[in-house]
């Protein structure tokens, strides 16, 4: 049996282990949350190294892939380097594939249309989704500066995003990741202020990272469409209570759990049995089709 593990900086309360059959192969997938503790995450990776077929890194990226460039997140790379035998992935390869496809499906279904007002809470970590939304003709506001850096300045073009990534690239190597993105218990905190509520109110669609959306969204989200990644039952309940009309997830439900793209990518890496460096974007597309992995739409209200 193949075995893949997601080592996450998120809370351990979301941990799970499932045995599943993917493309005829038995595979054990599990998640180990490290509650934002980088040292624990590093130790966990070291312990798993060589004993599992692939490791996913959750709650942190190793790379930002923006406009054809790849920028390193220092903390993410340093964590990944604690494994020397098992491949470590952050889900960015699969995320790119799944999120573009999901936006295209939304366009076909009429959930997205030219002129849709979109608030994407952060786009540098999912540039593929940002590009797909812009290509669909959406009127986008990208909240990377607002929600990651507390700078009240929405970016509105892909070029601005590319410019930000390029200028900030050396800082990405050294700035502690927790200063840019909530880790551990901070993921469950709610900002509780109304400073940025108007960005949510103005949008038809709120897209991007689940933690950032939940952290900053106002209590009233009546009629909105949410496009986000991994979604757990408690998240669905929270969004439903806020009045969200439709939830579109970029990843499918896997046997009752929402594994996250890092875990799914680790599973693909294990199944392909190819060296990580040889796995292409086309491979991810092919495997997503083979496994029928696609986004899901949930009508909540």
């Amino acid at each position: 049996m193949k075995r893949v593990v997601s080592v996450s900086l998120g809370a351990s309360s979301g941990d799970f282990t499932r045995n599943m059959v993917l493309n005829g192969s038995s595979i054990e997938v599990s998640r180990v949350g490290c509650n934002g503790d980088m040292e624990l995450a590093a130790a966990t990776i070291e312990k798993l190294d060589g004993n599992v077929d692939a490791i996913g890194l959750g709650g942190i990226d190793i790379y930002l892939r923006v406009g054809g460039e790849q920028y390193i997140i220092g903390d993410g790379l340093r964590l990944a380097q604690h494994a020397t035998v098992s491949p470590v992935v952050d889900g960015s390869g699969l995320k790119e594939t799944l999120e573009r496809t999901t936006v295209k499906t939304m366009l076909r279904n009429g959930d997205v249309h030219p002129g849709s007002k979109v608030l994407m809470v952060s786009a540098l970590d999912r540039f593929g989704m940002a590009e797909a939304l812009v290509d669909a003709g959406c009127d986008c506001k990208f909240g990377d500066l607002i929600f990651n850096m507390k700078i009240d300045y929405p970016l509105t073009t892909l070029d601005e995003l590319k410019d930000l990534a390029r200028k900030y690239r050396s800082r990405l190597l050294t700035v502690p990741f927790r200063m840019l993105y909530p880790t551990g218990s901070a993921q469950n905190e709610r900002a509780g202020d109304t400073k940025y509520a108007h960005y949510f109110h103005e949008a038809d669609i709120v897209a991007g990272d689940r933690h950032l959306i939940l952290r900053h969204m106002p209590q009233e989200m009546h009629g909105k469409i949410i496009l986000t990644n991994t979604t757990r039952p408690e998240t669905v309940t929270e969004l439903k209570s806020a009045g969200v009309r439709t939830l579109v997830t970029t990843t499918p439900d896997l046997d009752g759990v929402s594994g996250g793209t890092n875990l799914m990518e680790a599973a693909v890496v294990a199944l392909t049995e190819k060296p990580l460096a040889d796995i292409t974007r086309e491979d991810y597309v092919e495997w997503c089709e083979r496994l029928s992995w696609q986004g899901e739409k949930h009508v909540l209200n």
Partner: peptide, 18 residues
Amino acid sequence: SEDDVLRLDFITAMLWEE
């Protein structure tokens, strides 16, 4: 504060990084 340190560093990045 960490936020202010981050902001000052951000300003220098926006001014001078290519």
